[in-house]
Amino acid sequence: MPGDVLLVRDDETGIATVTVSQPARLNAMTTAMWARLGEIFNTLSEDAALRCVILRGDGDRSFSAGADISEFEQTRADKEKARFYDTIVRPAMRSVAECTVPVVAAIAGHCRGGGFELAACADIRVAGESASFGVPTARLGLVLNFEDMQRVLDLVGPQNLKEILFEMAVVGSQRAYEMGFLNRVVADDAVMSEAQKSAERIASGAPLVQRWHKRFIAALVEHGDSSRVPASLKEEVHLAFDTADFREGRTAFLEKRPPVFKGR
């Protein structure tokens, strides 16, 4: 079966690297790849020792060109097949967006269609100067799913999303950065090194705090205002003060040394 999703876990740093791999087709995602992606991220979310995930495409030509169109006759030929396809792809996307630790997308080359939507699931996006972005679904006669549309909308706003969808625009990294889709743009040969540095910075922080902050930001986005966040979640803000990592952080600061966090 063509295509795969690969996982490499560094136990020393607590950083995992997930690679979508079908380089002959610019890392287009087959249904099996979507399913595997979901399995991997669901497993990673349960890993208490994990601190960060880097999500990348295989090689430097493409992050992902999106869904593998060669499958469409079998997977999306009509609305019933499309509904079933969504029962695989939507949970996979959600597993990335809701991963319990921060996810850094390392974007080289093509980032189109479902690949663009997948990158939107990450928390931080780093791209090479020559990367390109777009969602040309109108050329295929299909629409963007509401859930995926919401993630992109939250990043780029309605006017930029209209440009992307209505004009079927393919934009470069600088334009994607200006739209708010990217966190930073680097030289093409520095994408993975910059993503690794970002992951290492994240991993150096208190792991429980990084997980809490991810949940709290998601809650603020979901509810639109801090006054609407459930009281039970707000109360979790105080839990950090009972952790060993808080004691370590405080002690390390006073002793003028780097903290050594254990995630406890």
Rank of each mutant, 00 (worst) to 15 (best):
S173T: 01
R215T: 10
R175P: 03
D242H: 08
L233P: 00
F216L: 13
L208V: 12
H213F: 13
F166N: 09
T251W: 12
H238G: 11
L220H: 09
R201L: 13
K197W: 06
A231L: 12
R184E: 14
S173C: 00
E200P: 03
K197R: 12
T251Y: 04
V229P: 06
V209S: 10
M179F: 10
H223Q: 03
H223E: 02
A203I: 00
T251I: 05
F166A: 08
T243D: 05
L208Q: 15
A203M: 01
P207W: 00
T243A: 04
S204F: 02
H223D: 04
D189C: 03
S193E: 12
S232M: 04
A206F: 05
S193H: 05
F181V: 01
A219P: 01
I202Q: 01
E235P: 00
S193M: 09
E167I: 06
D188N: 14
S193P: 06
W212M: 14
V237A: 12
L239I: 08
R250Y: 10
D188W: 00
R175Y: 03
H238R: 13
S232D: 15
L239E: 14
D225A: 12
F216Q: 02
A231Y: 05
G172D: 04
H223N: 06
S204L: 05
G180V: 04
G205P: 01
D188R: 03
E222F: 06
N183T: 11
A190E: 14
G224Y: 04
V191P: 02
L182P: 02
E167V: 03
A252T: 07
E200T: 14
F246K: 03
A187K: 12
Q174I: 11
E236R: 14
M179H: 01
M179I: 02
L220P: 01
A169H: 06
E222K: 12
V171T: 00
R228F: 15
H238A: 11
L182N: 10
S232W: 04
S227Y: 10
E248D: 09
R250K: 07
V186E: 10
H223L: 02
I202K: 00
A231D: 15
V229C: 07
V237N: 10
T243P: 00
T251F: 04
Y177D: 10
M192N: 08
E194Q: 14
R247Y: 14
M168Q: 14
Q174P: 02
S193F: 05
T251D: 15
A195F: 01
A195K: 03
G172T: 01
D188G: 02
G205R: 11
S173L: 01
F166T: 07
E236L: 15
A252V: 06
K234T: 04
Q210Y: 13
T251L: 15
I217P: 00
